[in-house]
Design a protein around this nucleic acid. Structure first.
Lengths: 169, 169
DNA sequence: AACTTTAATTAACAATTGTTAATGAAAAGC
DNA sequence: GCTTTTCATTAACAATTGTTAATTAAAGTT
């Protein structure tokens, strides 16, 4: 457990920048991290990590190759983190740790698939409704254009959806 | 390795039906499996498992709860499979197996996230183009309305996309 | 506090998709 | 081989989204 260290971030600081090789995995103690891609000049949000979640630029971290993802603080944020080397050492010292992380990875896969399927089954409007139900705090804390990119629509379209919703309530 | 057994399936046979609890994980030796959800009466394809891929109704298998997913043969298919119990035993007998499956789960997560992001960054038309490039064999083998549901559009819309593409080539 | 930059809303128009329905083609069943 | 069912295409219309641009609101900076 001494493998984990502490870091304090100011808003907009990056834990993994574009093209860099991610060396650490993070646990969000307080604040909010955002994982995004740059696609045709736009920031496409892949995930939001709030308190008590593990966060990482996973493809880069696992395969130790330049990251296509950026991991950035949306607010002033405090994290615990462990380096790639220390994590490998931990696997050696405590083999049972493989079981823990295996189950974590499995759970993450299930979540990712669930997110994926929500894009197959739901309209943007339904996704927004569900998102605001599941994460009412994020609706408050996260700028709308970032939520829009996470839902796979433009900020303009999200604004219209919110407007429609308002009238129907 | 004796934990793995062999099974031969005819087209449309199900390895995991709706509401059942999945007891096995599969490896496709030949043929094609489809994983889908039922949503408002429509079959929404979540994934296609062709030769040499591991397939499962993962959420049901892991948590041993009634499945919302159906795992079904799209063609006559041959699979190897291992039961939940034998897999747990395997973990006990061969602890290193945790490392293997941990890495498998991590890889699956990366793939799922990649799929997810492709829905954020690409239009249905771009997704179809990319799908036909990445899986030219599936385009031939899989009925179009199933591909459409996997791309998150209606069969009608996919037909139009194909038509537009034809003209532009 | 005044200024600058960044966000959110609204409007207008083009393009795409969903929906329903009809037709034609292909596959499956008898 | 014939019938039935399933699948793919096409058409017409409604609804939604994307795009661009202008306006208003909010946030950040000096």
């Amino acid at each position: 457990m001494k493998s984990f260290k502490f870091k304090s971030l100011k808003k907009k600081e990056q834990l993994c920048s574009l093209g860099s090789i991610s060396k650490e995995v993070y646990f969000v103690k307080s604040g909010l991290l955002r994982l995004y891609y740059l696609h045709k000049g736009n920031e496409i949000t892949a995930f939001l990590f709030s308190e008590n979640l593990f966060a990482s630029a996973f493809p880069s971290f696992l395969e130790q190759k330049p990251s296509e993802q950026v991991l950035e603080a949306l607010e002033n944020t405090e994290v615990f983190f462990i380096s790639k080397d220390n994590l490998e050492q931990l696997y050696k010292d405590v083999p049972k740790f493989n079981i823990v992380t295996r189950k974590l990875a499995e759970q993450r896969f299930i979540n990712a698939q669930r997110f994926f399927v929500s894009h197959l089954t739901q309209t943007p409007e339904e996704r927004y409704r569900q998102f605001s139900q599941n994460f009412p705090d994020l609706i408050q804390r996260v700028p709308q254009h970032i939520i829009a990119s996470f839902l796979g629509i433009t900020p303009v379209s999200l604004s219209r959806i919110r407007n429609r919703k308002k009238k129907s309530v």
